[in-house]
Computed example of a mutant assay.
Amino acid sequence: MSTYKLICPHSHSRMRISTSEGKHIFLRVACLQCTHEGCGWSVRAEFEMTHEMSPSRMANPEVRLPLATAAQRHAAMVSATDQPGLLDPLEKERAI
């Protein structure tokens, strides 16, 4: 299992979640902070569940999300072993 890496767009250091609150069954609001001592950037973020990739074997009738398209499911399977960080494209642009 992989974890999602959040990267500060300023210092390119890891971000940490300082607080997190569930707003809805499919929505979580979090405050993120850069771990670089010299940066100090913080931001509010929202994490939303939007599509079902595969059905649960313990289905809750309150959970109703649209099924992801075949292309979305395929892309998730391909990237599951090499999941990029949230802001990795910015890091690559700066390197060029």
Rank of each mutant, 00 (worst) to 15 (best):
T81I: 09
G38A: 01
T35C: 01
H51F: 14
L6G: 11
A75C: 02
A45V: 08
V78N: 06
C39G: 00
I17A: 02
M77C: 07
M77R: 07
S54K: 12
V43D: 11
M77P: 01
A80S: 04
F26L: 07
P55V: 14
C8L: 04
V29F: 10
A95I: 10
E93M: 14
H74I: 14
M53F: 13
I25D: 13
S13K: 00
E37N: 05
E93Y: 15
L90S: 04
M58D: 15
A76F: 12
L87H: 10
V29I: 05
A75I: 12
C39S: 01
R73G: 00
H10W: 12
R64T: 15
G38F: 08
H12R: 03
E91S: 03
V63H: 15
E91D: 09
M49C: 08
Q83I: 07
G22W: 10
L87V: 09
M58Q: 12
E62R: 11
C31S: 12
Q72T: 02
P61G: 03
R73D: 00
P9I: 08
S2D: 12
P84H: 03
S79Y: 12
I7W: 08
Q33N: 00
C34D: 04
G22A: 04
A80R: 08
M49I: 13
F47Q: 05
D88H: 07
L32T: 10
L86S: 06
A68N: 07
C39N: 03
Q83N: 08
R28P: 02
V29L: 01
A95W: 12
M1S: 00
E62N: 10
S18M: 09
G40F: 12
R64M: 11
C31K: 08
H10I: 07
H36K: 03
R44N: 13
H12C: 01
G22R: 11
E46S: 12
R16T: 02
S42E: 13
S13L: 01
A70N: 14
H36I: 04
F47T: 06
E93I: 09
P89S: 03
Q72F: 02
C8S: 01
M77D: 11
H74P: 05
K5P: 02
H10A: 02
T35F: 06
C31I: 11
R94G: 01
K5V: 09
L27H: 10
A45S: 06
P66N: 05
D88F: 13
G85M: 13
R16L: 03
I25W: 15
T35D: 07
S56P: 00
R44K: 12
K92W: 14
R28E: 11
C8A: 04
S79H: 14
S2F: 15
W41P: 00
S42V: 07
A70M: 11
I17D: 02
E91G: 02
S2C: 08
F26H: 12
H74V: 14
I7K: 00
R16P: 00
A68Q: 10
V29K: 02
E52G: 01
A70K: 14
R14Y: 06
A59P: 04
E21D: 09
T81W: 15
H24M: 08
L6S: 10
G85K: 08
S56T: 04
E48M: 07
S13N: 02
P9G: 02
L32E: 13
P84C: 01
L32V: 09
P66D: 09
S42A: 09
D88I: 10
T19D: 10
A45N: 05
I96V: 05
F47Y: 15
R94T: 12
A71N: 11
M77F: 08
K5N: 04
